[in-house]
Amino acid sequence: MPLELVFILEQVLNGLLVGVYYLLIALGLSLIFSLGGIVNLAHGGFYAIGAYLIVILTGEIGFFGAFVVSPILVAFLGMATERVFFRRFYRLDPMLSLLLTFGLAMIIEQGLRMIFGAAPIPYAIPGFLHGQVLLGKLIFSSYRLAILIVAILAVAGLWFLLQRTPFGRVVRAGVQNPDMVGALGISLSPYFTGVAALAMGLAGLAGVLMAPITGVHPAMGLEILIPAFVVVVIGGLGSFWGVVAAAALVGIIRGLTVYYYPPASEASMYLLMLAVLLLRPRGMFGERIARFE
C-alpha cells in the first residue's frame, strides 16, 4: 500500500475513535429529546461533572472505584434533575424547557468554577494504560483503544436495553405515541426518570473517559455539546444507528480535514450537517415521529 494511503487509513481509524467521544453524549441527547421533547443544553454540564467526579474520587477510592462510581453518581443526579425539573416541562412550549436547560447549564458551569476554580485541573492516564499499540506503520494510544472498548460495551448495552427488554419496548412506544401508552394503562413517568438516568449517566461516563486526555475545566461541557448536537441532527432523531453512524462519519471527516486543510477541521461537521439537511431534512436515518412533525 502506498504510504499516503496508510496515513489516510490512520486518520480514518483515528477519526472513528474521535467520533466515539461525541457518540456517548449524542445518544443521551437523542434519547431525552425523542421521549420528552426536551433539548437538554445542560447535557455537557453532566459530562463535566463526570470528569470532575473521577478526579476527586480517584484520590479517595482509587481509579477503578472512581471509574465505576462516578457515572452512577451522575446518573442519580440525572434522575433528580428529571424528577425536580424536566417533568414539569414535557407538555409545555419547548421554548420553556430550552430556557430551563440553558439555565441549568450555566448553573453547573459556574458552580464548578466556584468550587474548583476556573483553571484546568490535572488528571493523568492510569499507569497500566500508558503506552501505544503499533500496527505496522500505524500507531494507536492504548488509552484511546481502552476508551473505544468501554464505549462499544456501553453502546451495545444501551442497544440491548432499548431493543430487547420490556423497559426498552415501553420507551420506544413512548417515543412514538405517549398517549396510546397511557391509554394502555402504562405510566410513562418512571420511564422518563429511567431514560434521564441513562442519558446523563452516559454523559458522565464520557466525562470520566475524557478526563485523562482533555483539560478538566468548567467550560469543558460546552466544548463537546455542540458537536454532539450536530451528530444527533446528522444521524436523525429517534434512530439509534443513525446517531452511531453520524458520530463515526463526523469523526472521520474531521480527521481527513485535519490531514488536508486543518483550518476547516472544526467547520467540516457543520458543512456535513448542511449537506445532510439539504438532502434529508430528517437526518440520515431519522424516523418520522408524528408529534414532532
Binding site: 483515528n14 467521544y21 485535519v258 490531514y259 486543518p262
Partner: peptide, 20 residues
C-alpha cells in the same frame, strides 16, 4: 504549519500528521 481552530480539543489527528 497547521492552523488549529480555537475550538479544537482533540489533537490526535495533528499528532499523527507530525509523526508522519
Amino acid at each position: 504549519e497547521d492552523l488549529v481552530p480555537t475550538d479544537s480539543t482533540d489533537f490526535s489527528a495533528y499528532i499523527l500528521k507530525i509523526r508522519q
